[in-house]
Write a protein that binds this DNA or RNA. Structure first.
Ligand code: SF4
Ligand code: SF4
Lengths: 134, 134
DNA sequence: CCTAACAAGACATTTTTTATCCTTTTAGGG
DNA sequence: CCCTAAAAGGATAAAAAATGTCTTGTTAGG
């Protein structure tokens, strides 16, 4: 239960590798994929998602590649995970009202809320700087 | 990410219903399924898993049905969830050594360990008595 | 205009989830 | 001894999600 998917795992490996590079060093997707041992085409999809929300910046054409979108100490593991896996949802009912008709008086509901908070807190407390060994 | 499956959700609903019954009241599967709004055949599979590990006791034939295997205050939500969903595994590497070749020096590994502990702590701190409103 | 590199979308395969059905076993009652 | 009630166990099937791949388009440099 609660298992991170490959996609999430690959995403973390890839962006941590980026965070460990010298500032302004542009990395090729192929280089990152080889370094962290992830299928290049799959990693491409992941980095496209990162790019859309600004977690990484990308440059096309000759001399192109990827850069971290912000300094590593300003990117949390929570952001990275949620970027590719979506929000941390231990159970449907924590999404919002109306997802489960029983939520009004459900005794289990608050437990999932707590689980969600705890997980978010752990992941939010870790930055790419921590992970890259800045 | 980290979403409980229907099976887990159904399992909780079913056993919480049992926990809310008077002591020694035997419940039919059909009754439980109707009360908590779960497909009866699916709930049957779930209760078979419960039965195997003693979370519930079952009796066959006329007058048969299900009873809680222990008093509600001695059954934690963690046990219930793990009974049907398996152990709480935020990432492969928390299972044990050898699951990931990188785990020796991986900076992310300890984070998943912490997530696992936090989730387990929350779920272990809640009993069926709490949930059934004993 | 040729090549390098990422972007985007369609497609394919495998695994997991979410069940349902059928047969077997156990137990009680007439 | 049979009939019915009820759970146990196993096989099967449809739907959804995960895990990639492929093809084509876009952008940029030389
Ligand atoms: S925990 Fe309660 S509110 Fe949440 S999905 Fe289950 S029944 Fe609904
Ligand atoms: S977090 Fe580290 S040890 Fe765990 S699976 Fe990922 S690379 Fe391996």
């Amino acid at each position: 239960m609660m298992e991170l998917t490959r996609k999430g795992e690959y995403a973390i490996r890839g962006i941590v590798y980026l965070a460990a590079q010298p500032v302004d060093r542009v990395c090729l997707l192929s280089e990152i994929a080889a370094a962290v041992d992830v299928p290049p085409t799959f990693l491409a999809k992941i980095f496209q998602q990162f790019s859309k929300i600004g977690l990484v910046r990308s440059y096309r054409g000759t001399g192109g590649g990827f850069l971290l979108g912000r300094v590593p100490e300003k990117i949390t593991l929570l952001e990275v995970v949620e970027a590719v896996e979506g929000p941390i949802i231990p159970n449907r009912c924590v999404v919002g009202t109306g997802e489960c008709a029983r939520d009004v008086s459900c005794t289990v509901h608050p437990v999932w809320k707590r689980v969600q908070e705890q997980v978010r807190d752990v992941l939010e407390g870790v930055t790419l700087k921590d992970l890259a060994g800045g």
